[in-house]
Amino acid sequence: MKRNVLIIGGGPAGMEAARRIRDYGHTPILIEKESRLGGHLAKWHKLFPEGESTEELLTSLTADMEGINYFTDTNIVSINKLKNLYVAIFSNGISVQADAILFATGFSMFPAEKKEEYGYGIYNHVITNADLEHFFNTGKDPRIKEPKVIGFVHCVGSRDEKAGNRQCSKVCCATALKQACEMKELYPDATIYCFYMDLRMFGRKYEDLYLNAQRKYGILFVRGRVSEVSEDIDGRLVVKAEDTLVGKPIRITMDLLVLMAGMSPCVENPKIASMTGVHIGEDGFFMPRDLLYRSVESHSKGIFFAGAATGPKTIPETLNEARAAAMAIDHYFKQKA
């Protein structure tokens, strides 16, 4: 018997899960709030650890979409539970009956302007990691003008209780290093600093990336948080930080500052949670049944999770979780039958 699975979120998790669910013989219905599939991934240029092309990954993810119903520019209006079914109404007027729902809602970028001391949106040469990827894609950003000194600020809105985000966003360390190396390739004469708390190079090949950044690209690493940023008369940025390894305050004038905005829980999480009764953790991410054994199942019957909806994750982790979720959903149907 064919069953409907509603997948909320058309990022890598949602797309990968949709294909797998279809392969199991069920009917995936994928909805995406933005006008194209791909989520945050679609806005990126290259990926760590080895500079893999986003374009290629997206092509493989979208290559085979046959039998998958998907709607872009679509939001959830309501979800109601009827005995063993969920009835969802979309913002485009369509309503579907689903036997299971997969939350692949991902994350929201931390709004960097909330850390006002870094001056995003106030000073002319402060950008975010996402802005930089956009620049790599398009080659255009009025804020980047032949920079001689560039700074990368790690952990902007990550591991920062005052910003309301206690968690580590996991991907920014490697992203910062990748971007720093890319900038060095674009501007070989530039001096590039990375301001970090800890460098969390946990994945395979990540440490190589770090060594390369130091040896091959000459990126300078400063252990310490940036305390404040101001603009001098010429419009250059004056960055103050503490080098905690030396125990001295430092002050560097720069032409570009890149803020590594972290992953916040998806802003729509509370709304979706209130419709379905799934649990939200203290940190704002969805709470699975448990964090070890059943990390793709929710506390509500027939609702599953994949990807960054349950916390920051890298691309391969997200894709694997999507596959695991598809398997869990199939298993759930088999048990019910």
Binding site: E116, E117, I122, Y123, S227, E228, V229, S230, K240
Partner: peptide, 9 residues
């Protein structure tokens, strides 16, 4: 104001 540069600006 160093933490909220908008104010002094």
């Amino acid at each position: 104001s160093s933490l909220t540069p908008m104010v002094s600006q």
